[in-house]
Design a protein around this nucleic acid. Structure first.
Length: 495
RNA sequence: GUUCCCUUCGUCUAGAGGCCUAGGACACCACCCUUUCACGGUGAAAACACGGGUUCAAAUCCCGUAGGGAACGCCA
């Protein structure tokens, strides 16, 4: 049997790391079994639905490299095009399907019309919860005759459709792909709603039907869906549909050990993209959050993940999202890029900061070669690279840490001598030899140790006490620029 | 409240009764490299939630306790 999985986000906002990880595990499971990956949009909540988030979710998934075989795709004009056996992969465009199935269930006596208004139900529920009891959905219309119901609907009364859950207390055991056997009692869910009074289906219903219609065989989803599985089993049973196998993933926690939320910091895929992380690193990191290969390997390319993935390595307990490790993995993934690729990835970030490095590829290549070991993200690498652009007036900012260093006894003397040496230099770019001579002279004249020489000098070069190999910098930035930077320091710090 | 799920270094995790004096990775710290920051290298420190069983033997099996989480919607 060929494997088919799906990822079914609801377009209520950005794609989050939690959702991305769910998509990833589905993707890895499918690809490692040479199966298919389906994408479906669950937009049955008209209130929370945000049209533009569909596009952003699709773009983010694509950026992550989680290519799907079936579902909605973006045309060049950002219009949705559907590919696959179904006419549409948006639930809001499949309403007739759910309505038909719901009516079939009514005919079979497995569901019924309920005329309880939402307000009435909320009241009943609140009262029961206040009493400290468990609310189990039920309805006084359970045994109303179909003729009577149809008559009321004809009269314009609004009704939702409820599933007629067996009152015989039957146990349902689901064999969870990651948790093993989990047993639920059918009474737990009560007579839950499958179709709202406005004709829109409720999640469990549309989901169960679509999974069956799209011939989904396996589902990995968040732990919070565990109780929903029971509803879907009941629906599948009533409709004579096969039930796909489900696996419930543990949740991702923030630093505060609470479920990852906007408050616990960065969490949208967009954020990591904008911060200059590599998609392959993010995927690598997400995969390791709640899954392990059973070996001590930590670095994985997407291909390696597909080859290594097995659901047996999935973990039960919640995991804390640790940005430090992501950063490290990103550094490792960046190492695998060659200079051309690296430069191509960094360029948009330079442009964003309006930094132009007006140099030949030969020079850029040389710069990258010398400083790329310090790169952690594309965005962060900009802060190192900006030192090579000629825009010192606006760009050259003296940090507080640098100011402290200029307060060292001999710092200003060093910078003064440095400026003089530059002025005496007759070429546009100094050689390493020139620099060594200047260093020797200054250190002897001012009588400073190397640290007392290098630190103020770095601050006079980049405005900060850290960041870049000085010997590289001085040979790749022209004399005029170097003088301007030293000048700016001296103007601000008279000794 | 009810039901379900989870619990090994700060964090991600290895661990399927003896290979455990509990392994790896990130972070942290120290040292080395470097006449500077960083990069790199080496090393140190750091955990089986607690209490009972079962067993010759328990991080591993069972039962409790505590803690954390999820669900209980005409949200997904």
């Amino acid at each position: 049997m060929s494997i088919k999985v799906r990822f079914a986000p609801s377009p209520t906002g950005f794609l989050h790391v939690g959702g991305a990880r769910t998509a990833l595990f589905n993707y890895l499971f499918a690809k490692s079994h040479k199966g298919q990956f389906v994408l479906r949009i669950e937009d049955t909540d008209q209130e929370r639905h945000q049209e533009n988030s569909i596009i952003s979710i699709l773009q983010n998934l694509k950026w992550l490299g989680l290519d799907w075989d079936e579902g909605p795709f973006l045309s060049s004009k950002n219009k949705l095009i559907y590919k696959g056996s179904q006419k549409s992969y948006r639930q809001s465009e499949r309403l007739a399907i759910y309505q038909k199935q719901a009516e079939d269930l009514i005919q079979k006596g497995e569901a019924y019309y309920c005329f309880l208004s939402q307000e009435e139900e909320t009241q009943i529920r609140n009262k029961i919860i206040e009493e400290g009891k468990t609310y189990i959905p039920s309805s006084p219309y359970r045994n109303q005759s179909l003729e009577e119901s149809q008559r009321r609907i004809k009269n314009g009364e609004k009704a939702c459709i409820r599933f007629k859950t067996s009152q015989v207390n039957k146990n349902y055991t689901l064999n969870d792909l990651v948790r093993g056997k989990v047993t639920f009692a059918s009474e737990m869910v009560g007579d839950f709603v499958i179709l709202r009074s406005d004709g829109y289906p409720v999640y469990s219903f549309s989901c169960a039907i679509d999974d069956a219609l799209m011939k989904i065989t396996h589902i990995f989803r968040g732990e919070e869906h565990l109780p929903n599985t029971l509803k879907q089993m009941l629906i599948h049973e009533a409709l004579n549909f096969p039930t796909p196998q489900t696996g419930h993933l543990s949740i991702i926690l923030g630093k505060d050990k609470k479920k990852l939320s906007k408050r616990s910091g960065a969490q949208s895929i967009e954020y990591f993209k904008n911060e200059g992380y590599l998609a392959s690193a993010l995927i690598n990191f997400l995969a390791l959050l709640g899954w392990n290969p059973g070996t001590e390997q930590e670095y994985f390319s997407k291909k390696e993940l597909i080859n290594t993935f097995s659901k047996e390595g999935l973990n039960l307990s919640a995991a804390v999202f640790d940005e430090n490790k992501l950063l490290w993995l990103n550094k490792e993934h960046m190492k695998t890029l060659d200079n051309k690729e690296l430069w191509g990835d960094i360029l948009p970030f330079l442009e964003q900061e309006k930094i132009a490095i007006d140099k030949s590829w030969r020079e850029i290549n040389k710069i990258l070669e010398s400083i790329r070991s310090g790169f952690k993200t594309f965005k962060q690498s900009v802060s190192l690279l900006k030192n090579f652009s000629n825009c010192s007036e606006d760009r050259f900012i003296i940090s507080n840490k640098a100011k402290e260093i200029f307060n060292w006894p001999k710092s200003i003397q060093v910078v003064t001598k440095w400026k003089t040496s530059l002025e005496n230099l007759s070429k546009e770019y100094m050689s390493l030899e020139d620099f060594k001579n200047i260093q020797k002279t200054i250190q002897t004249e001012v009588k400073v140790k190397s640290k007392e020489f290098f630190m103020p000098l770095r601050c006079a070069l980049v405005g900060e006490p850290e960041g870049i190999e000085i010997k590289i910098l001085v040979t790749l930035v022209d004399r005029k620029e170097l003088i301007e930077r030293a000048d700016k320091v001296l103007k601000n710090f008279k000794s």
